[in-house]
């Protein structure tokens, strides 16, 4: 099962430039056309499941508007635990 991730978009910063959308390897980002930010842009959002939390959107984002989270895979989490993680 692929790693599961998700993003949080800070609407104070997102300007809907679509750079993250163009580079997303899973193609799961889109503009939220039903919603406007305080600056009047359509912010980016996750349009479907499938985000792996790779963080490439955050690397492209010119506004540092994205926070990227990822679930730690169970096996890796167990492997880390004994060494006092």
């Amino acid at each position: 099962m692929p790693v599961k991730g998700w993003i949080e978009v800070d609407e104070r910063y997102c300007k809907g430039c679509e750079l993250c959308i163009s580079e997303c390897p899973q193609n799961v980002l889109a503009l939220d056309l039903d919603h406007l930010t305080p600056k009047g842009y359509h912010p980016v959002m996750l349009k479907m499941e499938g985000c792996t939390g790779c963080g490439i959107c955050a690397i492209m984002c010119p506004e540092a508007a994205l926070t990227v989270y990822r679930e730690v895979p169970q096996k890796a989490a167990q492997a880390v635990q004994p060494s006092g993680g």
């Binding site: 599961k4 991730g5 800070d10 104070r12 910063y13 300007k15 809907g16 430039c17 679509e18 750079l19 600056k39 842009y41 939390g53 790779c54 963080g55 955050a58 690397i59 492209m60 984002c61 010119p62 506004e63 540092a64 508007a65 994205l66 926070t67 990227v68 989270y69 990822r70 679930e71 730690v72 169970q74 989490a77």
Partner: peptide
Amino acid sequence: TPVQVVYKRPASLSDTPTHYCPGCTHGI
């Protein structure tokens, strides 16, 4: 499931939204 923060806004950036045009690489 334990959750890991892959990326978050760096502390050296202030809270001020930039005045740059959308998509400007100044922000990057």
